[in-house]
């Protein structure tokens, strides 16, 4: 049994973003990066499935520049067996189809039984890459999965629908699943895992297509969101003063107390 996990590196959640000089993306030079949240859960699910099956291999596939190695090394330390790094500096702004095409070609030769990906990235937020990879590889897929039962021959997955509804699917394998954040508790890397990771294989490959090829959309401009409301900021840095002002305003201005 082989499980491929698609993992992406994205700017830290708490990063303060500034628009780049040309206005078409954010300044990346001073950012720190981390693993995309739902991809971390996808890896955890892969490791748990391998443990339940009592064997197999978990292969991490990442598209990104050299700095994305930190995501790969962390995944290997947590228990992934090996990794494929599609090294590219110019896919940061790639649309989902272009990224999916490169990832699909990197996965194809592995012939996995299961491919897992996070449900969406925390940077572009397209929420499409996994589904397109499935289509390009000819695999059935299920999105927004919050439980996986692969105890028998058949794969059963629980999908999240909207407004608190759920649904089980029985699926053919090989298949691709996109995993929802919070599916389980993510394990920490152990010291032993970190040591073991140093001996694990990280294969570097080139992207199968050039960045920008067949791109279907152009980002013309990136900017701070237009405010939908005129927010009154209270306290001017003094939290307690702000709290006192807020109580007064809720009473006399908004009249909700």
């Amino acid at each position: 049994m082989k499980i491929v996990v698609l993992m992406k590196q994205v700017p830290n959640k708490d990063a303060v973003l500034r628009v780049r000089g040309d206005g078409k993306w954010v300044e990346e030079g001073d950012l720190s990066f981390e693993v995309n949240e739902s991809d971390g859960y996808a890896l955890e699910e892969a490791l748990r499935l391998k443990e339940k099956k009592g064997g197999g291999e978990v292969v991490v596939v990442t598209l990104g520049p050299q700095r994305a190695k930190s995501v790969i090394k962390d995944a290997l330390a947590r228990g992934a067996d090996r990794a494929i790094h599609v090294v590219a500096d110019d896919f940061g702004q790639a649309g989902p189809f272009a990224a999916a095409k490169v990832l699909a070609e990197a996965v194809r030769g592995e012939s996995p039984d299961l491919v897992l990906a996070g449900l969406q990235s925390d940077d572009h937020g397209y929420g499409q890459t996994g589904v397109i990879v499935a289509e390009l590889l000819g695999l059935p897929h299920a999105t927004i999965v919050i439980e996986v039962d692969w105890s028998g021959e058949q794969l059963r997955v629980k999908r999240e629908l909207e407004s608190g509804w759920y649904q089980w699917y029985t699926m053919q394998t090989p298949a691709l699943l996109t995993i929802q954040s919070g599916i389980s508790q993510i394990r920490y890397a152990t010291l032993k895992g970190i040591m073991a990771a140093k001996k694990k294989e990280i294969r570097e490959v080139q992207p199968a297509v050039a960045a920008g090829e067949g791109e279907f959309q152009t980002v013309e401009r990136v900017y701070l969101p237009l405010k939908q409301k005129q927010t009154q900021f209270l306290g001017d840095g003094d939290a307690k003063k702000g709290a006192a002002q807020l109580a007064e305003k809720l009473r006399n201005e908004a009249r909700v107390i």
């Binding site: 940077d123 937020g125 791109e215 279907f216 152009t218 990136v222 900017y223």
Partner: peptide, 16 residues
């Protein structure tokens, strides 16, 4: 469309 979990907006045009 929104980027970075709502921290930025982007204007996008279709191509091709």
């Amino acid at each position: 469309r929104r980027l970075f979990q709502g921290k930025m907006d982007a204007d996008v045009t279709a191509r091709g």
